[in-house]
């Protein structure tokens, strides 16, 4: 499964995936792999919340497709409806799991891969970002995979990271921790 699919899948975990991406995911030939990945992530999520994983062995691709076909004209109400459910209290855990999985499973795992971002990911995330975010207290925060940034975006973000780390290093009252953050940020590109 490529990074683009993985990102869509992770966006689905956060209720953030757009319809086109989901369709693309469902039309993939490697459905077994997609399903396995989804179940793994759901298992981790459920383990964190309930200590068990009801997602095992359930195929939801057909019902997701049905929902998509039935609601193509009005995706927005569906979204806002979902945001009012108790899911809001679960987002940090889901986001956390997604983030760690993205880092863990991502190509060249981790912070240092910023030099070689997969271009597909970068081009996928920018147009989505241009669409105004559906903000609100209840909505989950959109996670940006670091691997998804292109070189210029990465450079831009590094600058902010460094500048912030530098604020800390000079006097956060934490001495070496601040310097460590600075080095960690500057070693990241």
């Amino acid at each position: 499964m490529d990074d683009r699919l993985r990102e869509t899948l992770s966006a689905m975990m956060d209720d953030e995936a757009d319809e086109l991406s989901v369709r693309r995911l469902l039309s993939q030939e490697e459905q077994v792999e997609v399903r396995a990945q989804w179940q793994r992530w759901q298992s981790v999520h459920d383990l964190m919340h309930r200590g068990s994983s009801p997602a095992d062995g359930i195929d939801i691709s057909a019902s997701v497709r049905e929902v998509l076909d039935g609601r193509t004209r009005q995706p927005e109400p569906a979204l806002s409806q979902r945001r009012n459910t108790p899911v809001r209290w679960q987002w940090p855990a889901v986001a956390m799991v997604t983030a760690s999985l993205l880092v863990g499973f991502g190509a060249g795992a981790g912070w240092d891969s910023g030099n070689n971002p997969p271009n597909g990911l970068a081009s996928a995330s920018v147009p989505e970002a241009a669409v105004n975010e559906l903000s609100g207290e209840a909505s989950p925060v959109r996670e940006l995979a670091l691997q998804g940034l292109d070189e210029q975006q990465w450079e831009h973000m590094s600058r902010y990271l460094l500048e912030h780390a530098q604020h800390n290093s000079v006097g956060a009252g934490q001495g070496s921790v601040g310097y460590a953050r600075l080095v960690s940020a500057s070693g990241a590109y």
Partner: peptide, 24 residues
């Protein structure tokens, strides 16, 4: 601590969202 940066958007188009590195 957190820092807030506001500047005119340049030629680099940045996506909207949060990235995390440890606690940052």
């Amino acid at each position: 601590a957190f820092s807030v940066f506001v500047e005119p958007a340049g030629r680099v188009s940045m996506p909207t969202g949060a990235s995390r590195i440890g606690a940052t």
